[in-house]
């Protein structure tokens, strides 16, 4: 197994943002993670990426326990991620942003620049390579984050709402990009709100609700699951008030 997360709990005070979540990922899978706002998806990602230490539970990646390793060690081992709200390196060009990722495996600048250019091409950013990264909009920044993460040559990539806030034509392009990343041999876990995207991309989905995994299966199975429907409807009803 590529990744095994077992009984992950993340508590903020007495509140459990993630509550006994488990997930097993095989090489080359493309897994979806859905759930209403505040369900704990991003917090779960942060635990997997070493960005925050789980209160309890264990995470193994390629057979090695990584639960308490720092984020940079995760990257080195081949686990990369993007952020729900992109964190780009202001003051750098688009290419330089991607070079920061590439420098992990290619310490020499020239080589890293060449690697970065390959990924800029792959992600459709080649024409914008010289632009200051802050000149890009949301969709561009999300692509920079993906290119940057890919530059670390990951085995597993966690995408946190890489498609949120995009226009419908941008969404099409982004779906196609995710498919191409998968075709490169990268295993993916994607958090996504748009069900259509989940249906098109993934074969297996986990549904989060109040920190717990309440359902797991094919997209068709989980969308038909009454518990899932209740979780989403309950949310909507609360909001309507």
């Amino acid at each position: 197994m590529l990744l095994e997360a077992e009984g992950i709990v993340k508590a903020f005070g007495s509140f459990r943002a993630v509550d006994q979540a488990s997930l097993v990922v095989a090489e080359n899978e493309l897994i979806g993670l859905i759930g209403p706002n505040g369900a704990g998806k991003s917090t779960f990602f942060n635990c997997l990426a070493g960005d925050t230490r789980p209160t309890s539970g264990t995470i193994r990646f390629r057979g090695q326990e990584i639960t308490r390793l720092s984020p940079d060690r995760h990257a080195r081992l081949g686990l990369a991620r993007t952020f729900q709200v992109p964190i780009v390196f202001a003051g750098m060009t688009v290419r330089e942003n991607v070079m920061v990722g590439a420098l992990l495996r290619h310490p020499h600048r020239r080589r890293a620049a060449a690697e970065a250019d390959e990924l800029l091409h792959f992600t459709g950013l080649a024409e914008r390579a010289e632009m200051p990264v802050t000149a890009l909009g949301t969709s561009g920044r999300k692509r920079v984050e993906i290119a940057r993460a890919l530059a670390t040559e990951p085995r597993l990539l966690l995408l946190d709402e890489a498609l949120a806030g995009l226009t419908s034509s941008e969404v099409e392009a982004a779906i196609e990009l995710v498919e191409r990343i998968h075709a490169r041999g990268v295993t993916l876990i994607v958090v996504e709100h748009i069900m259509e995207v989940i249906h098109r991309l993934t074969e297996r989905v986990l549904v989060f609700h109040q920190g717990r995994v309440i359902a797991e299966g094919t997209p068709a199975e989980v969308t038909a699951d009454p518990t899932v429907i209740a979780a989403y409807l309950g949310r909507r009803r609360r909001r309507a008030r």
């Binding site: 984020p71 940079d72 990257a75 952020f83 964190i87 780009v88 920061v100 992990l104 993460a149 670390t152």
Partner: peptide
């Protein structure tokens, strides 16, 4: 945070 996530 982003730097760390890229192996820095």
């Amino acid at each position: 945070r982003a730097a760390e996530s890229l192996g820095v």
